[in-house]
Simulated assay, not measured.
Amino acid sequence: MVSKQEVRPDVKVRTLPMQVASHLVRRIAAGELTDEHVPSELDITQQFGVSRVVARETLKILSSLDIVHIAQGRRLVLRPAEEWDYLSPQLLEWLPEDQVTALLREFQETRLLLEPELAARAATMISKSSLRRLNELVDRMLDLENSPEDYLEVDHAFHMEICRASQNRILDRIMYAARWLLATSRRVTNEEPHGLAAATAIHREILEAIESADAERARQVMHKHMELNIQILGKPKRTGRVRRRPARP
């Protein structure tokens, strides 16, 4: 049976299937388990000393993360790593450190493709009420520069407000689903000297461009914001771990 010592101390794993699943995900991500060695329901009961019900729930968790496919005859097949559900906060918590770091860079590259255009659209489409909310959020950022965890929520709300100004519900849901990655990447960039003060300043620049209805300026400043994040994430590995505690939804 997986011991409590194997579970990260800052994560409350409430069920035995979650504990077993986290153990298996780490082994799969590390390349220790291939298609020929992925444990079946029976294997899990024998290897971990758990019931068939726990084993079955464990496999459902792995399937929900798109890590395994339960084929006909309940045969397990590993899915390609490219197809895993990287927007899941649970998978983000369980992946090895180096894989999370790579994911955060890819996430910022994705934002670089999307958010400058969203900012440009906001500059031409945003309502007065949304502008008022953006101003309130930037003012709140200034007040929270000594409270990094609270700052995360305001930061996310700022970017979501810009996204909603585009009036595209699909983009809105994509941005919302990626909030765990946003929070985790922000925890890294916040570690920069004066990181939050710099973040507040560039968010204010973005706001001023949108307020001026200057689409090109809004695009450029948001692009600069994303590029700076990518540069920080590309720096040599710091001591300590990436803090992956999910933000409050």
Rank of each mutant, 00 (worst) to 15 (best):
A209Y: 11
E191H: 08
R179M: 02
D172Y: 05
Y151R: 13
E161S: 10
S212E: 14
L171E: 06
Y176V: 00
Q167R: 15
F158L: 14
S212H: 11
E211Y: 09
E192A: 11
F158D: 03
W180P: 11
R164G: 05
R179N: 03
D155Q: 07
A157T: 12
L181K: 06
H156Q: 11
E208N: 12
L181E: 04
R173F: 02
R164Y: 08
R169F: 13
L182T: 05
E153P: 00
S185R: 07
R179V: 01
L171F: 13
I206P: 08
A201G: 07
T184D: 07
L152S: 09
E161V: 10
E153K: 09
G195H: 04
Y151G: 11
L181A: 12
D172F: 05
A201H: 10
E205D: 14
S212M: 07
G195W: 03
A165D: 07
T189N: 01
S185G: 03
G195D: 02
E208K: 10
G195I: 03
T184F: 04
H203A: 01
I206H: 10
A197G: 13
D155S: 10
A199G: 02
D155C: 03
R173G: 00
A165F: 07
T189A: 00
L171G: 02
R186P: 00
Y151C: 06
A183N: 02
E153G: 15
V154F: 03
S166P: 01
F158T: 10
A165G: 12
E192I: 03
D155T: 02
A157S: 15
A197M: 12
R186F: 04
C163S: 09
V154M: 05
R173P: 00
L152V: 12
E205G: 06
W180A: 15
R187G: 05
R186E: 06
A197F: 04
I170E: 04
Y176A: 08
L207T: 07
A178G: 14
R186Y: 02
R164D: 12
R179G: 00
H159A: 02
I210C: 07
E161N: 10
E153R: 13
I162P: 10
R164A: 08
E208D: 15
E161C: 15
